[in-house]
């Protein structure tokens, strides 16, 4: 079982407390009605399906209830970092360097 650091609680806790919530940094457009069909379909359905480091969302469902972001390697399941919703996307190259 993976252990995940909740950036709000500041604790590393078993995966059981968390729920996966899809790819991160997909922002709902400010004015959906101005979106073309293609743009809206992309927002709804198109995801990266990454093999390797993946920016994704988790929710501390059985804890503080907060959604947060994470970078996890989909091959090894290792988390490089978790960070609060709204914080900028971390520099991946730097993260990978630090994790060595």
């Amino acid at each position: 079982m993976i252990q995940i650091h909740c950036p709000y609680c500041g604790e590393t806790l078993p995966e059981l407390e968390f729920a996966y919530a899809g790819e991160a940094h997909i922002v709902r457009p400010e004015s959906p009605s101005e979106q073309t069909d293609e743009e809206w379909a992309a927002f709804l359905f198109l995801r990266d399906n990454v093999k390797g480091p993946h920016f994704e969302r988790w929710r501390h469902a059985h804890g503080c209830g907060r959604f947060f972001n994470a970078v996890r390697n989909t091959i090894t399941d290792r988390f490089y970092i978790t960070y609060k919703a709204g914080e900028p996307r971390p520099d991946l190259a730097k993260l990978l360097e630090e994790s060595k």
């Binding site: 729920a19 919530a21 922002v27 709902r28 969302r57 929710r59 469902a61 209830g65 907060r66 959604f67 919703a85 709204g86």
Partner: peptide, 10 residues
């Protein structure tokens, strides 16, 4: 959960 998602992140 859905409400929290929109409220917290959007």
């Amino acid at each position: 959960t859905m409400m929290e998602d929109y409220l917290q992140t959007e």
